[in-house]
Amino acid sequence: MSTAGATPAPRDEGAKLGFRLTLPAQILVLFISAFPLLMQLYISVTDWSPLSGVGWWNAWEMWNSFANYTDLAADTRFWSALQRTAIVMLVCVPAEFLLGLALAMLFADDFLGKRVFYSILLMPMMVVPAVAGYMFFMLFQSGGPVNDILARIVGAPVTIAWLSDPTLALIAVMIADIWQWTPLMFLILLAGLVGVPEDQMKAATLLGANAWQRFTTIVLPKMKTIIIIALAIRVIENFKIFDTLYIMTGGGPGVATETISVYIYKVTTQDLIWGYVAAIALAILIVLSIVAVYAMKRMAKAREVPA
């Protein structure tokens, strides 16, 4: 600003520097949101596909007057994939939460070997998800170790074909997800549990409160925000479930483990109807954006709580 005079005020210098420092991030965000979003919107009202022989900018030649969106409403494979994603979420997230909470309670005070156990129990969440998928692919082979353990328990050979049975395959991929992400719940909930004041717990004990009463009246209320954050993170990430699942079953047998990400992946790479994919993706983006605003408000509130 030339009108500000020869020596700009320090505040002005700060604002300028702040603008320059945030510029690269702003450009990257714009580069990945604004233009792609418009492109997605444009393609979603056409029959365009990479094999259609025209550039995407000429997709208007294949305008199909919102047929993709009406198709979507009637696409049973899409809705059952969405339903399956919801089932996986409704089983995995509560299971991870309860197991993580139970583990966190065991780790609330000091005991011999705590740090070693803690580090080992966190390991699954650091394993590359695709590799975790391969681990469980091996474990659930009909001649694999899971059946071997079962055989030792029942004392007779067990040859369950886990990944070829529609129901068992879904259970297997959920077990893999629970194995990998319970540590994340454990980690976050333990951090919250440590923040519960010790003296309140002691006072409650002196007043004759039993463990369950202490848990429901002191621990749970103190951890409310942390629990919401932990659940929100897992719900968001679980909704995207792809890597482990795709490596284990490829969405099969048939479509038995086809979640929303796997469905979109298949339509993108096998059916190649990108106009339709763009419509699905946009519909999902709009719903998730609303969720994002809500989650953001929650997180902003949480940050005011001293942790």
């Binding site: 997605q40 393609i43 792809f242 990400s261 993108t268 763009a278 999902i284 983006l285 998730l288």
Partner: peptide
Amino acid sequence: LFPPMAVMIPV
């Protein structure tokens, strides 16, 4: 928040 799968077509 967005699943990568839902923004990959334009990318």
